[in-house]
Design a binder for these strands. Sequence first.
DNA 1: CTGAAAGCGCTAACAC
DNA 2: GTGTTAGCGCTTTCAG
Lengths: 348, 348
Amino acid sequence: MRPKLARATIKEVASEAGVSTQTVSRVVNARPDVSPETRERVQKVIERMRYQPSALARSLIQQRSYTLGVVTAGLKHIGPSRTLNGITRAAEQAGYALLLKELPRFDADDITPIFDALLSRHVDGIIWAVPEVGENRKPFSSLPLHLGVPIVYITMGPRDGLSVVSIDNYLGGRMATAHLIEQGYRRIGHIAGPLDWWEARQRMAAWKDTLQQFGLEAGDRHWAEGNWSPASGAQAVEKLFKQYPDMDAIFVANDQMALSVLQFACQRGIQIPEELGVVGFDDIPESAFFFPPLTTVQQDQYNVARIAVEEILKIIESDWHGEATIERKSVTLAPTLVVRESSVRPRK
Amino acid sequence: MRPKLARATIKEVASEAGVSTQTVSRVVNARPDVSPETRERVQKVIERMRYQPSALARSLIQQRSYTLGVVTAGLKHIGPSRTLNGITRAAEQAGYALLLKELPRFDADDITPIFDALLSRHVDGIIWAVPEVGENRKPFSSLPLHLGVPIVYITMGPRDGLSVVSIDNYLGGRMATAHLIEQGYRRIGHIAGPLDWWEARQRMAAWKDTLQQFGLEAGDRHWAEGNWSPASGAQAVEKLFKQYPDMDAIFVANDQMALSVLQFACQRGIQIPEELGVVGFDDIPESAFFFPPLTTVQQDQYNVARIAVEEILKIIESDWHGEATIERKSVTLAPTLVVRESSVRPRK
DNA sequence: CTGAAAGCGCTAACAC
DNA sequence: GTGTTAGCGCTTTCAG
């Protein structure tokens, strides 16, 4: 069964206007070679019939869909949805539509159906906006080298031959740790994110390296691992204080876990920032309203997304024009340290 | 210019396997009328060539794309992204792809291009997941009655003749207010969301009605308006305490603003819940880790999304089979009150 | 069981 | 300037 299309087709418009479909096509695509009178007449019919060309048919013949595939995961978390927010904006501006796929888990192993679904719909490019977790970059090595469409990756370690756009998490970790040292804290612990996450490893490595550079301690008993959730932060801070009772500051790998640290301190009567300095990561909107307001590392995910879209469009354009394939390069953006009360020690 | 497709076409598979394209089509679509030997031979070629049928070409001929349009707004906020999360899951499960559009503002006035973009790509249905704000439902009245595809709306007031899926915000407001009364609070203020939002109006109306029902005060000086952000909550609570100094509880229209109330209390040395009961709305993941943990109204946005997808698929299916058009009905889900410390008065 | 022909809605390439 | 022809990749219809 083939239901009647509600929308008008180019053929109907053509016969209504008394011209060929080709002429209608020319008018729709604003080609120069149509006489003003014809153009106007056709235009009128188009408006009257509310004719809207089928992007589908167009994609088929032009081998170009003006559609980008976006693969994400964990949309209910703030990071991924901010990124997606940036992608939709940038794509909209460039006149591209977005085909969205969300992985059921961060480390989904079978990504073939995802690619199949996107490619069968002729996307012009794919933005892989799934954080690098565990071995979830593994499946890519077995992908046919030339998928047929360009891919740009967001939030993972730079890799040769791939287009990657990400925030410099290591730098963010250094900024956070250095700031605490500068404020006079010397026994600085760390609550890490889940260490199968690339971002968590980067932040932790920065903490360790910075402390060692300053000749301060950063051993096994000076950190604990969480899983990004406030609940895990609560467990981690408890464990950490047992292991490291004279700790005077903590760099926490995200704001949600930092919230648990603040609550822990409040319950134990530990003064922040006097007795304990705290720095988080992410700058979620609530952070400025924690008690006390939280110093944190801000990542501009919106901008990352914008750049990723720009990069992929650049590649698509150049492929389209048959130019030499654009060199795949990595772009790394610097985060910003937002200093609030939780880490600023009153001068003695 | 028409670049060579990287993927194999049905024609190539057919000639490789020495059969006609119809036969390949039959194998791909698992039709019964192919001999086992032919089927197997074709199957082999398909796998070897990694043939993947073009969903585009299929959509064109079948007048059905197995694609849903999703329109959202404010993705960086937790509510919309949770909803989207539910939609991607449900759509994925049903084998539908998602074409995503995000409005630049909640009250975007010109939605025609949005519809055009979706319809020109032949979506089978549209999920309108934009909260009802101000007059942003107005443009719909001027839409051609029969758009050609079904629409299901999320998060707005039920309307005759439309499919709407939403949480009962009024009920949520009643639950919150009644709970405070039950706990012995009698002078209960309200921090509302922006009142051009339908949800904010519902929550506020419930607060007012419930108090009046119990013979308690709910006048103009007993509430203040925020804009959902923690910053606005801070302003609102300050203003409210000036207007209503002997207030003993607050029902706050969302958790982020409630956070500001908790912080305000902390700074002024107001004991929660002893001197001030607080109930929020949304149950963001951080709420359980506020100080003290926040009582709040939980909305199951994930489920709302799931039901919306089910509804639209039902309509699509029935349209497709030429059955009588399904009645458009509204589905309203009840929220849940999550009781934590911020509202539980110790028994005297 | 299999294939040939037609066509979904549109545009590229060529006539005139 | 404008129309004709062909065909994007696939499925439907109908003949064999």
